[in-house]
Design a protein around this nucleic acid. Structure first.
Lengths: 186, 186
DNA sequence: ATTTCATATTCAACAAGTTCAATATAATAT
DNA sequence: ATATTATATTGAACTTGTTGAATATGAAAT
C-alpha cells in the first residue's frame, strides 16, 4: 500500500511524470522503498482510476511525449489520512532477510563458506553506508532538488538518520559475527 | 524464494507437518521471515512437486489426521546450494519501511501527529526488543526444541544477535527523533 | 557511422504474499 | 452446557512485486 502513498507524497510536492517519479524514488526514497518503473506506471494508472490523480499529455519536440500527473483534492485527503493513521498491527512493514535465513542454517555448510557470505555482505554494507552519506549530503544541500522548505527537509533527515544508524549497526554485527566465527573450533 | 529454503532448512533437521512448520516459523524464524499458514501449505505442495520433499499421511485417533513432510536427497542438495550461493545483487531482501515513508512526508501533518506515530512505534519496538530477548533465551536453553547440536545453535544466536542489535538501534533512533522533533519550533 | 545514454511508456507472464473463510476433531476451561 | 484453544488443512480471490522485452526519439560520445 505504501508505494501509492509514496507517489502521492511526491506528487503533493509537485506534478510529475512516471519517469520523474521513478528517478525521485531512486534518489531519495530508495533506502526504505524500491519500485520498478513498470510498477510505478501501473500504480499511477490505478491511482488515476481512484480519482487521486489527474493526468495531462504533454507534447514535446526534442524528447518523446510525456504524461504529467497531478494530485487531486481526493488524493491529498488520502495522503493526509494515511500519514497520520498508523496502525502498528496492520500497517507495519514486515522485516525479511534472506541473509539471516542463510546464517540461521549456517551449521549445514562450512565455517569458511559462511565467512565468505559475511565478507560479501560486509562489502555491500560498506557501500550502503556510503550511499546513506550521499543521501544525507543531498538533504544538507542549500537548494535540494524537489523543494526547499526547511521544515520538510527536517523530516527527510530523520529518515536518513535511521538509514545511517541501522547500516552502521549492521556493519558492527557483521564484524562481531566474523570475529565470533573465527574463534569457533569446529 | 527464501520461504522454500527456510522450510527445507527446518525439514532438514527433522520431518514435520505444515502445522509444525508454521509453529516453528513463529517461534524461531519470525524475526527475519514471516509466512501465513496458507502460504506454507501451498509452498510445501510445490516443493513436493519439485521432488524436494516426500510426504506421508498419518492417521491419528485423538487428533485430525496429518501429512508429514520429509526432505529428499534432491531437497538437501537444493538447500546446500542455496545456503552458500549468495549473490548480493540477486539474493538480498530489499528493506522496506512504511513507517519511514510516513516520517519522510511528516512535514505535511502536525508535529504532534508525528510524535504520536513515534510513540506508537516506540511501544512496538520495546515489545520487539523483549521478543528478541525471549528468542535469545530460547536459544540459550540447554535442550532446545528442535535439535541440540551446539554448532547449530551458535548460528541461531548470531541471527538473534542481529535482531537484538538492530531493534536496540531502532529504539535509539526513535528517542533521538522524538528529542529532535520536540526541539523544533514550527 | 555507430553505439551509448537519457527520455518516456507499455505490456504480458510470472512469482510471492495476504485475506479470509471454511472444514473437522478433541481437549480444556468457564 | 458453552466457549475457547489446539490440532490440521484447503481453497479462492486478490494485491503486490519482478522480469524482461518492446517501442520510440534525440543528443552526445567514440
Amino acid at each position: 500500500m505504501s508505494l501509492k502513498h509514496g507517489l502521492l507524497g511526491l506528487l503533493n510536492y509537485e506534478s510529475m511524470t512516471g519517469y520523474d517519479l521513478d528517478k525521485e524514488f531512486k534518489q531519495t526514497l530508495a533506502y526504505f522503498w524500491q519500485a520498478k518503473a513498470s510498477q510505478i506506471y501501473r500504480e499511477l494508472d490505478t491511482m488515476e482510476q481512484n480519482g487521486w490523480l489527474t493526468s495531462k499529455r504533454v507534447i514535446q519536440e526534442e524528447k518523446p511525449n510525456k504524461r504529467v500527473y497531478s494530485i487531486t483534492e481526493k488524493g491529498k485527503q488520502e495522503l493526509l489520512n494515511w500519514l497520520s493513521a498508523y496502525d502498528p498491527v496492520k500497517n507495519s512493514t514486515p522485516f525479511k532477510s534472506a541473509f539471516l535465513m542463510r546464517i540461521f542454517f549456517g551449521g549445514e555448510i562450512s565455517k569458511e563458506k559462511t565467512l565468505d557470505l559475511f565478507q560479501a555482505l560486509r562489502e555491500e554494507t560498506v557501500t550502503h553506508v556510503q550511499e546513506m552519506e550521499k543521501i544525507m549530503a543531498l538533504f544538507n544541500e542549500s537548494d535540494p532538488n524537489i523543494i526547499s522548505k526547511p521544515n520538510i527537509v527536517k523530516y527527510w533527515k530523520l529518515t536518513a538518520m535511521s538509514g545511517e544508524m541501522l547500516s552502521r549497526t549492521q556493519l558492527e554485527w557483521i564484524d562481531k559475527s566474523i570475529a565470533l566465527l573465527e574463534e569457533y573450533n569446529d
